[in-house]
Design a protein around this nucleic acid. Structure first.
Lengths: 138, 138
DNA sequence: TCGATATTGGACTAAAATTATCCAACTTTG
DNA sequence: CAAAGTTGGATAATTTTAGTCCAATATCGA
């Protein structure tokens, strides 16, 4: 199983593209799709999610398109991933909230898995969009 | 999305149960299922996977059942999880093998994600079944 | 040896999530 | 006003997950 789904992968590519061309004004979804091999009809849905999440800004109308809402160094991998596929949980019951699991309190697994949850979140928070781009240059 | 699926969760509970009662001889699937709230018809499938993976030994016939194949301290969380849901990959293209992704070589994401992959694997290898049980005692 | 107790293996199904596709409505630019 | 573009939602195809069922096989004990 993949932790990062393919729609999220598309979105990350789109973000990287926007970051690379951030000084050229908004980029139309159509152009983005063809540049990054993303199904054209699908990218609208992804871009809308990214917009809702505040990672991207949209400009309607002719000459419109999409642009990053902030500097690439301020966009974390975790944010981007969660914008598309929601929070990555090791196991739902760890979310606490609607921890419908009646075993949670005494569950020996929960204790250990919380550590993994932290590690994953921290790791993905540390990586920024600009860092991802850097490995492109070299 | 959960990294650990619910069938895997069932399997982990089953393993924990077997570990706790490892000196009482083989435990029948039926008994295991009712003790751990696992659908009875489903547990056979899980136990077979665990048996195939070499984590559990099965004893056919009357008075038969299942028992851990090794000491709980020799069973890692990663093994158990992979026995049920296969390898956990951050992203398929990282597997290298059938890395059908034509972008892999130049993909700026891959480089970063490999680190996450390592972190997850290492974390799950460090945790053993006996460690999981310890948090039960306290 | 027979019958009861178990596992084995695989076919089958139901439900949910993922991965799209399509289209009518709306907005902006020129 | 027309062209270029986004918005939002309905719908559909595919895959994965989760679960069910049953006939075949193996072993124990009387």
């Amino acid at each position: 199983m993949d932790i990062i789904r393919s729609d999220t992968d598309y979105a990350l590519r789109a973000l990287a593209h926007l970051a690379l061309h951030k000084d050229n004004g908004p980029i139309a979804a159509k152009a983005l799709a063809s540049a990054e091999d993303i199904p054209e009809d699908f990218i609208y849905k992804l871009l809308r999610s990214l917009t809702k999440a505040g990672l991207v800004e949209s400009y309607m109308g002719a000459q419109g398109g999409f642009a990053l809402a902030r500097d690439p160094s301020k966009v974390t991998l975790l944010e981007a991933v969660e914008a598309i596929q929601g929070p990555i949980t090791v196991r739902k019951c760890l979310l606490g909230k609607d921890s419908a699991c009646p075993r949670h309190q005494t569950c020996p697994l929960s204790a250990k898995l919380e550590g993994l949850q932290c590690a994953v979140d921290q790791f993905m928070t540390k990586i920024t969009l600009s860092e991802i781009l850097e490995s492109l240059k070299s």
